[in-house]
Amino acid sequence: MLKLQISHPVQFHSANKQLFKSTLFLIPKSENLGVMGMAEILTSLSLLEGINDNTGKNPDAIAFAETFEQAFGFGFNDIYDRQYDLFRRKPCNLTKTLDAMRTALMKEYKRRKSQRDKKENEKR
């Protein structure tokens, strides 16, 4: 089989063909994100049931995982193992990434509000 693939590579094209090449890449061991953080986000999005597939149904974990992997250039290896690990966390760590995202949004909100308030005070 390998000899045939080498001799006739056109006949053995990959079934998992990427639709686009992403310019974004996940930092695997990022403090507040990483592969487990992406599993947390993926699982939360799935549970919200606000994203549908082309049949109009909530996509399964594998469909979400493949999309995330392609968009951010990484691999879950097995999304079901990552989800299992996620739900084995202590309750205080269950939403670690989501909590970090909320903190980042609040920090940016306060920074922008401070700038807006400063500009308004300068106009007076």
Rank of each mutant, 00 (worst) to 15 (best):
D117V: 04
S114K: 15
L42D: 01
K113T: 11
P91L: 05
M38W: 03
E49N: 05
R112N: 15
F25H: 13
A104N: 07
G50C: 11
A71G: 13
L24P: 03
F76I: 01
D99K: 13
E49F: 00
A104W: 08
T43K: 01
L26D: 02
G75L: 11
M106H: 14
G37F: 02
F64R: 06
Q70F: 06
F87R: 14
K57L: 13
F64G: 05
T67Y: 05
D117Y: 02
Q70W: 09
L105E: 12
F74E: 10
R89K: 15
E66K: 11
L48I: 01
T43Y: 07
R88M: 11
D85V: 04
L45R: 01
L24D: 02
K123I: 13
G75Q: 14
L33H: 07
G73C: 09
K119N: 07
N52K: 08
A61V: 10
V35S: 03
T43F: 09
A71W: 06
I79R: 01
K96A: 12
R82Q: 15
E108Y: 07
S114E: 14
Y109W: 05
R89M: 08
L48R: 11
F76M: 00
Q115L: 07
F25S: 04
G73R: 09
C92L: 05
G50T: 08
L45Y: 01
F87A: 06
L98A: 03
N93H: 13
L86K: 06
L105R: 15
L105V: 14
